[in-house]
Design a protein around this nucleic acid. Structure first.
Length: 686
DNA sequence: GTAGGGTTAG
């Protein structure tokens, strides 16, 4: 029976005033250690019996648990609230504090209607509540409350003002946030930090940095707001540089900054620096809670050090869901699907219920190794066994799972039957699969949709153009690339990074900016010569390339430059770790295998999608990756064809030299006459 | 007799 709707009749009490007070005290004390709604109900019934159901103090404590605790019940809190004859500001403020409240303005209106005066705690929690509510009306509600802040004399209260700044940032109105900030009579370090964090959240990193540089006073939170702002915006190098500055100014590394920096190292594949931070944490006794542990595990996984990630994972006394998730995710990207599934088994044994991320990671683990049926089973059991409703990313994984395996019809069926409109990433998975398996008809249909859904993403156009190119439809390829140019979308430049002595060395194909460029290029030549003896045939030749860096000659691809640098700088037996922003092209993939064999060196490459561990002439991906898995057709082009395409700016699609027709990979062969050949040699851009 | 602002994972 619901206590609130049917209050228990108060039993006539013979308690003396002292006894009543003592009982009241006991109930209030008990309430402080409540952790479930059933206990709350019991205490509530006792309060009713004692005639204290209208007591604001007692009701406030009940309400606090119901409204705020994850084990609470907001509806119960609201019913309690409605029955209070004279709720005080504390009651209202507590409701604003609830993470589950969907209409904070309604409560605020009631507050005004019932003539309850807001106090200094009211506006901070009200703005916070308005910030977290996903309601387009929140902005106008917030503006009205902003006016009240002034009217009621809280315009110099720093708590209210800081929350107001955060509120405007949450509504993506940085100008208004700035205006509040500028008008503040006294700007505390917290107000500055709120501005820095808010600007970074919206991607205005430079503006944030300018403000950061202007700050009259900084503390460790401020430093971390800026460092983590860089990390959140992918500016990992700047994050590490700012950390150097932070140390120069005498600030010690603490927990939050360590976490941000570990994320930066993960982004850069900067294992040496990541290790340094981990050691610092251990040496200085920084508390490793679940979140920090997850960050450390993630760093080791993303830097290609799975075994070290395992060590950290296994050493955790209690493992949170995110620790399991990042370990399973790490195994997935390293192509160790079987272990990922085994680890999931252990997780189930330990009765840790999986969440949607666990399932995403597991499905991706299956997709990377081709466990199609196992992945499908996991997907089918999601709702029934784990109570998790599949989201967009799960459908994306399922499409990827079927697509990579070449089961394109089933992948398309998933898309047709999914309950929501597929987004660009889901369709992109199918497009990628079409390219791998050479299904131009389906790929064209999907590719056109993807390009329109995600028009600013250069990768989508490149994928579509490559799909056309490998099918010999050069004009269509040229058109796809031209569409990208016309829309002002710039292709992401391929970059490879390798860390040496805590310095990140970055390479771009054909680029000679590195101080040791000359030696590096000599090393590439030597490297290629050596692997040729082991059967390496450059993939350059074939003509139209299935690559992302097609403007540059294949032999000086950024990845080969990084490997050459690594060979120069690492000792025999030392593992090389390279991080690339795009996917590894087929030629570099083949070359890396042979380099690992001839130089007896383990090379770990992280690309956009996954890890490749090259060792003894093999890759851990077993070639089950993004490279086309069919024999490319051969086409014949006449001079006029080439000129026709040239006019459509096809110079971006590689046109080969004749000797490449020997390529074992069945690359496209292009035949052309002598005149064109000379032109091609003289004008490599053509 | 109770409460508030800025920084960390997948």
């Amino acid at each position: 029976m619901d206590l609130l709707l049917h209050p228990i009749p108060r039993t006539p009490t013979t308690l003396s005033a002292e006894d009543l007070l003592a009982r009241r005290r006991a109930v209030l004390q008990g309430l402080a250690s409540c952790f479930s709604m059933s206990e709350i109900r019991q205490y509530h019934s006792q309060l009713i019996r004692l005639g204290l159901s209208s007591d604001n103090d007692a009701a406030g404590r009940l309400l606090r648990f119901c409204a705020i605790s994850p084990a609470g019940d907001l509806l119960y809190a609201l019913r309690l609230f409605q029955r209070l004859p004279n709720p005080d500001p504390f009651i209202f403020n507590t409701l604003f504090h609830s993470p589950f409240l969907s209409s904070p303005l309604l409560i605020y209106t009631q507050m005004l209607l019932r003539s309850v005066h807001p106090n200094q705690f009211t506006f901070p929690s009200l703005f916070k509540s308005l910030s977290s509510v996903c309601d387009p009306r929140s902005l106008s509600a917030g503006r009205q409350v902003h006016a009240h802040v002034f009217k009621l004399g809280f315009h110099s209260d720093s708590f209210s003002q800081n929350n107001l700044i955060s509120f405007y940032f949450s509504c993506v109105i940085p100008a208004d946030a700035r205006q509040v900030f500028d008008k503040m009579p006294h700007r505390s370090v917290i107000a500055w930090t709120t501005m820095v964090g808010g600007l970074c959240d919206l991607g205005f990193v430079e503006e944030a940095r300018n403000l950061f540089d202007e700050m009259p006073e900084r503390n460790s939170v401020t430093w971390n707001a800026m460092i983590s702002g860089y990390v959140r915006n992918g500016s990992y190098l700047q994050a590490l540089r700012l950390f150097d500055l932070m140390r120069e100014e005498g600030f010690e590394l603490e927990k939050f900054t360590a976490a941000s920096l570990l994320a930066a190292c993960a982004g850069l594949c900067a294992l040496e620096q990541g290790r340094w931070i981990h050691r610092y944490i251990e040496r200085n006794g920084i508390e490793v809670d679940t979140k920090l542990a997850t960050t450390i595990i993630d760093m080791y996984c993303k830097c290609g050090c799975l075994e070290k990630a395992y060590d950290v994972f296994n050493s955790l006394p209690t493992k949170g869901i995110s620790s399991w998730n990042s370990m399973i995710g790490g195994l997935a990207t390293h192509g160790r699907g079987e272990e990922a599934i085994k680890l999931f088994g252990e997780m189930e044994k330990e009765m840790v219920p999986p969440d949607d991320i666990t399932l995403t990671n597991l499905l991706s683990a299956c997709a990377h190794v081709g466990f199609v049926d196992q992945g499908r089973k996991l997907f089918d059991r999601m709702v029934l066994a784990h109570g998790i409703n599949p989201k967009m990313e799960h459908f994306g994984c399922l499409v990827d799972l079927y697509g990579r395996a070449g089961r394109l019809r089933e992948a398309e069926k998933v898309i047709d039957e999914m309950p929501m409109e597929p987004d660009a990433s889901v369709l992109g998975a199918l497009l990628g699969a079409c390219r791998i398996h050479g299904n131009v008809d389906l790929g064209e249909r999907i590719g056109k949709r993807v390009v329109e859904l995600d028009p600013k993403n250069s990768g989508r156009y490149v994928l579509l153009a490559n799909l056309y190119a490998i099918a010999g439809r050069l004009e269509d390829a040229a058109n796809a690339r031209r569409l990208m140019d016309d829309r002002g979308v710039k292709k992401e430049t391929g970059r490879s990074m390798i860390e040496k002595d805590c310095v990140i060395n970055e390479f771009v194909a054909g680029d000679k900016a590195h101080p040791e460029a000359r030696e590096i290029y000599d090393m590439v030549d030597e490297m290629l010569q050596r692997i040729r003896r082991h059967g390496y045939v450059p993939d350059t030749g074939g003509g139209l390339q299935d690559i992302d860096e097609e403007e540059n000659p294949l032999c000086y691809h950024c990845e080969k430059l990084a490997i050459a640098f690594g060979l120069m700088k690492t000792k025999q037996g030392e593992t090389m770790r390279i991080c690339k922003n795009l996917r590894v092209c087929r030629d570099c993939h083949e070359a890396s295998k042979l380099i690992s064999l001839t130089y007896e060196r383990e090379i770990i490459v992280r690309d956009r999608n996954r890890f490749h561990h090259f060792k003894g002439g093999q890759c851990s991906c077993n070639d089950y990756c993004d490279h086309v898995r069919f024999d490319l057709p051969s086409i014949t082009m006449t001079t006029s064809d080439i000129f026709k395409i040239k006019n459509k700016s096809l110079h971006r699609v590689h046109i080969s030299t004749p000797n490449s027709s020997k390529s074992e990979h069945g690359s496209l062969q292009v035949q052309y006459d002598a005149a064109v050949k000379i032109m091609l040699i003289k004008n490599p851009k053509f």
